[in-house]
Amino acid sequence: MNIISARNLALWYGDNKALKEVSISIPEKSITAFIGPSGCGKSTFLKTLNRMNDLVLSVRIEGTVEYAGKNIFDPSVDVNELRREVGMVFQKPNPFPMSIYDNIAYGPRTHGITNKARLDEIVEKSLRDAAIWEEVKDRLKKNALGLSGGQQQRLCIARALAVEPKVLLMDEPTSALDPISTSRIEELAEELKEKYTIVMVTHNMQQAVRISDYTAFFLLGELVEFGETEKLFSQPMDKRTEDYITGRFG
């Protein structure tokens, strides 16, 4: 089952065409990795999937992205609701300057949950799902900025999970982390795919090989190749994919 399907998605930043008619169907409850050189459009495409690009003034988009059977650009779509279901984790951990507890409770509160017991439950469950509960359960009222980089990133994942999303978009979630924190996030991603669909931009090709089920290779705004990770990294179909993954690009 595919959860997100883009059809002929084109995107311009002013006159610059950053995405060229991208069509892709992302299978649910799996990890899909987007790879490609800097400026290839992979992050732009990722941000399009929950309309983060709406915030950029000069952006123009053509084509469709179907999520839950509906084009996300349809005027009837509630963007806040879309972003609740399709959450985002960024490259640099960005906890709010508030307590660990409030970081997690922030989303549910804005969606109208005020009951203390219910919030406690959500906070614990989210932190557990993000594999950070044991480390922070005794200091939930402490400021989140006091956590290490790797802990902050897992906190941000917990914060994204707190609003019960279906899809998690991750933009280079480990590029600012040390190897140990990186492997914790990778293991976490593999656990999370049982309940969620994960789409991840990564510059680390070994990471894509290690944890993703599907890989999409972008180049100059074009989706060159998309398929099962094992296949793409052992027998790529396109010469450009082969050149890029074997490091003989350019």
Binding site: M205, Q206, F233, S234, Q235, E242, I245, T246
Partner: peptide
């Protein structure tokens, strides 16, 4: 950490 034809 070769991939594709290099790995083969």
């Amino acid at each position: 950490q070769p991939v594709a034809k290099d790995l083969r």
